[in-house]
Design a protein around this nucleic acid. Structure first.
Lengths: 124, 124
DNA sequence: TGTTATTATATGTTTAAAACATATAAGGGG
DNA sequence: CCCCTTATATGTTTTAAACATATAATAACA
């Protein structure tokens, strides 16, 4: 989102303005709510639905933080082929945090509505 | 916006998640579109309407950046009482950037709608 | 007159999320 | 054996936001 980079397109442009901070967090919480347990690598794909970049660094660090904060738990799944998977599931605190984000997003939507309405009134 | 700080309330909580990055920029552009020319100190008050924090550091640095990028111009107003005011007005590139933000926000709203709808479907 | 408050702009410093880059390891396929 | 895919992890750089402080003009008031 910018007018400084001629290649700027929503979801394509690399400039940082306009993104919702920490958006990866509520996306992970919601994806877990939808489908538990899940491991990081599969969540990485699912995140694309919400337009979140597929950066494993951000993903794994966020999952770690959420676990340290008591929002999710994980245990290793060594069954199956390939490397072991850390399977995550939501904890009650994580469910509450998800609700918190929902309320926050409803407020953000209202602010954006007001912003857009103001623009419509002002543009000649 | 968090569940880690017990005093968390929208617009009150100091934690950073959930905010729109660089939101101060489109707010300044829109406020100038509404009322030109305007100086920093008065824009600082007007920003509150959009829930943007009244930090003069962020404000003046953003105005400077927008000026360097050719989005706004300023000139000093030494008339009147008190210290001189730098009066800002929008340039054509700034008008275009404002439109750009509007389109971006419409896209953000759609993403949030999808997020909320998904939650409503999933919550038991 | 000196002191303090208000208006106004500016810059220095710290913090933390995001972006970017790279490392490690298990197992499958040719 | 070498390479590809799956999977997790960590190191480094960039940058917006938050926090803090500096400067200056004038008004207000004792």
């Amino acid at each position: 989102m910018c007018d400084r980079n001629k290649d700027c397109q929503p979801g394509v442009c690399s400039c940082r303005g306009g993104k919702i901070e920490r958006f990866i967090e509520p996306c992970l919480l919601l994806l877990l709510k939808k489908n538990q347990p899940a491991h990081g690598y599969e969540l990485l794909d699912s995140l694309q639905v919400f337009g979140v970049s597929g950066d494993p660094g951000s993903l794994y660090r966020t999952l770690r933080r959420l676990e340290n904060e008591g929002m999710v738990t994980s245990d290793w799944d060594t069954s199956g082929t390939g490397p072991a998977k850390r399977m995550y599931r939501l904890l009650p605190a994580g469910e509450k945090l998800l609700e918190h984000w929902i309320n926050h997003f409803k407020a953000v939507k209202q602010t954006l509505d007001m912003y857009i309405k103001t623009y419509e009134q002002v543009k000649e």
